[in-house]
Design a protein around this nucleic acid. Structure first.
Length: 590
DNA sequence: GTAGTATGTCATCTT
DNA sequence: CTAAGATGACATACT
């Protein structure tokens, strides 16, 4: 709810600005308001580039914001469902949160100090040994999961983020300043880190999907449930659960998120110098040994960077072996999902039937083509992936499901999935999702038949190149037919888009023409009126002149001629005759 | 539930 | 004649 609204705010504002600018430009160019639309269209080509740049910047900013907010947003949804809402908080959300939340939040400001103090206290209270057991475990657990699970999802976002490091920092600071976090820290300190009995299963908060999709992570979830105190979970659940290892304190919970973006090492250096030592140094004791070991394995590899993603060639992914970790479809979808609030999508937790779309569709998809789809997408539509960050994330989750639909040819499946998410967090992206799904449909078909080309190539290659490409591979009838269909559909799709665009432009052009004609008509009517008036005046003058001249004429007796009996007529050469009316009529009659 | 819109797809015509 | 493009008509999804 909040998330959808917030993002829109910025765009609208910017859009308005942009429109304003464009309009002003048009005005400068002499376009009137009436013709604004049309001129706008006509200059579209010229302005498009500019607009796109603007939009891209805007989108990036949006993504940043969304990303920063995602966690909290998720929190809202999930908490709303499962737990007393603890408040996530971003500048934008703060207002709402403050209203809905209890007094705890009122104290947000000035919490930063408490956090530092907490850390200090923690260090003091728990020598390295203990820290290794308690705090470090949290970090470890949290970090690894984030890197492991979230890597794919984060990547897209991450690619965007580098440009705006500030946002991350800000989000971080916000997280750190969270009252819950502080509270947790305090509690943790008080209770010491011996959280053994602490945790009780709050799987609700936890995202079952991860375990489902990431076999390796199962133990994580279990560990979480055991270790994490319900209160903590409740407060943080949402995005945090999914992203962070549960066993950690709030702090740890937050950590993973950051770690995912910065990489564990960086994160540790920044916020947990001491912790870092422990984590890195040590085999983790406690019940999470397994997790720890995983962590160790999963090292503090910095999250994959954008370039890395790019480097992934479809071929490598589509090699055909489903690799649970790297290839996992979830990773793809998760890729988008994790970073986005989706991870915490309420639907999942509530229904418990696993990730929306992933459960069934994934399995199906898997059989046909191990989840390399996404990777392929990344290659085929790199821009989309790299530029679309958050929104894309939401999109990516759907494709599988939709693809399934397509396969089954039963669009009705979607509603069922929709149920899965009682409320899709990012409905605004649905269009994109849809289009993406469309593309993925052919993609999936191609995958299913193991067609060795990308849909992109199939569609966009020139005839000669296409034929050459086809000749290099032995394809069976079905494959050939599919390739032809894909090419035909792809080209027709583009043609349809062009056609519609043209039609729209024609309509706009005709509207403009209509306006022009109306204006001209008005002008002509006005001109006619003026000329009519002028003519009347001239007639009047002529009449006056006539009477003056006629009145000055005298016959041989010095008497004026009667206007009833005579009239004045003039010839082309300017000669004027006095013609008897009767005579004239007689002449005429003759 | 309906109307309007956007988009993909197919059939057909045109280039 | 074929391929590609253009376009009307239809289906579907979404708002």
């Amino acid at each position: 709810m909040m998330d959808t609204e917030l993002p829109k705010m910025h765009p609208s504002q910017q859009d308005m600005d942009l429109i304003d600018i464009l309009w002003r430009q048009d005005v400068d160019l002499g376009a009137g308001r009436e013709v604004f639309d049309f001129s706008y269209r006509q200059k579209e080509v010229e302005l498009r580039r500019q607009r796109e740049e603007e939009e891209e910047k805007q989108q990036q900013r949006l993504r940043e914001q969304e990303k920063a907010l995602l966690a909290q947003l998720q929190l809202d949804e999930e908490t709303g469902e499962f737990v007393p809402r603890s408040a996530p908080l971003t500048q934008t959300n703060t207002t709402n949160a403050a209203v809905t939340q209890n007094g705890v939040f009122a104290e947000q400001d000035g919490d930063a100090m408490s956090f530092d103090e907490c850390m200090q206290l923690l260090v003091e209270t728990f020598p390295l040994d203990e820290a290794a057991e308690s705090a470090p475990p949290c970090l470890d657990a949290s970090v690894p999961p984030s890197t492991d699970l979230m890597m794919p999802p984060d990547i897209p976002d991450f690619t965007h983020d580098p440009l705006l490091p500030g946002s991350l920092d800000q989000a971080w600071m916000e997280l750190l300043s969270l009252p819950e976090l502080q509270q947790c820290l305090n509690m943790q300190m008080q209770e010491s880190l011996g959280m053994d009995g602490f945790m009780k299963p709050s799987t609700d908060a936890q995202d079952p999907n991860y375990s489902q999709y990431l076999p390796g992570m199962d133990h994580f979830s279990s560990v979480q449930t055991e270790v994490c105190p319900p209160e903590y979970i409740n407060t943080y659940d949402g995005s945090f659960n999914t992203m962070v290892s549960p066993n950690l304190s709030q702090m740890s919970l937050n950590v993973p998120e950051v770690g995912a973006e910065f990489g564990p090492e960086e994160f540790n250096e920044l916020f947990y110098p001491e912790m870092e030592v422990k984590v890195n140094s040590g085999p983790l004791t406690s019940d999470e040994g397994s997790t720890v070991s995983q962590l160790a394995e999963i090292p503090s590899d910095p999250p994959v960077n954008p370039m890395d993603l790019h480097s992934f060639s479809p071929g490598s992914f589509s090699s055909g072996k489903p690799e649970p970790m790297s290839e996992f479809p979830d990773s793809d979808s998760g890729l988008s999902l994790d970073s986005s609030p989706h991870t915490s999508s309420p639907g999942k937790s509530l229904n418990g039937d696993g990730y929306f779309g992933f459960s069934d569709s994934d399995s199906e998809e898997m059989d046909g083509c191990p989840g390399d789809m996404e990777s392929d997408y990344a290659e085929i539509f790199p821009l989309v992936y790299l530029t679309d960050g958050a929104s894309q994330a939401s999109l990516s989750e759907k494709p599988p499901a939709e693809a399934q639909q397509m396969k089954a040819k039963s669009p009705k499946i979607e509603p069922a999935e929709a149920n899965g998410h009682s409320k899709p967090p990012f409905t605004k992206d649905k269009q994109k999702k849809r289009s993406e799904a469309r593309l993925s449909r052919d993609e999936q078909r191609a995958k299913a038949l193991q067609i060795p080309f990308t849909v992109d190539k199939i569609i966009n290659l020139a005839v000669d190149d296409f034929n050459e490409m086809m000749s290099k591979h032995q394809l069976n009838e079905a494959q050939l037919a599919l390739v032809r269909d894909i090419r035909r559909r792809g080209k027709n799709k583009v043609a349809a888009q062009n056609c519609r665009k043209r039609k729209l432009e024609n309509i706009v052009g005709l509207e403009y023409e209509l306006d022009s004609l109306k204006e001209e008509k008005e002008r002509l009517v006005k001109e006619k009126s003026q000329r009519s008036t002028s003519l009347r005046e001239m007639k009047q003058q002529l009449s006056t002149l006539y009477h003056d001249v006629f009145g000055m004429l005298r016959d041989e007796h010095g008497k004026p001629f009667s206007p009833n009996e005579y009239s004045l007529q003039h010839t082309a050469d300017g000669t004027v005759f006095l013609v008897p009316r009767l005579k004239k009529t007689l002449v005429k009659n003759n």
